[in-house]
Amino acid sequence: MSKTPAGTLYRGREGMWSWVGHRVTGVAIFFFLLVHVLDTALVRVSPEAYNVVINTYKNPIMAILEAGLVAAIVFHAFNGLRVILVDFWKKGPKYQAQLLWGVVGLWVVVMVPFLIRHLTLAFTGGH
């Protein structure tokens, strides 16, 4: 049986792990965003400078990192909608755990076609 003290809301279950996942993905996305604005700013330097840097994104290793980034964004987005429901929907707190499984289900539904399309493009060169 669980050693969780009675009345402890968040310990070790859906509520806590979704909170951990939201923080970890949020921080990862934030640091990517800083880099992404900087790489895009190279369009202001010259077409050559931008193309050289953006071409480093177009290889299979970066494609897998991009897939991880998109996986993080999609989880953060759907779990964010879950947080909004928990905060604003009267029954949100009661169903917060079920809502997390909805988030995971939707995440799979979005990620499967995304990965098929993205990895096909990445590994076939797209031409």
């Binding site: 994104y57 494609a63 399309r117 031409h127």
Partner: peptide, 9 residues
Amino acid sequence: EGVHAIDFG
């Protein structure tokens, strides 16, 4: 072409 289409143009 997805990511392959991204360049200055």
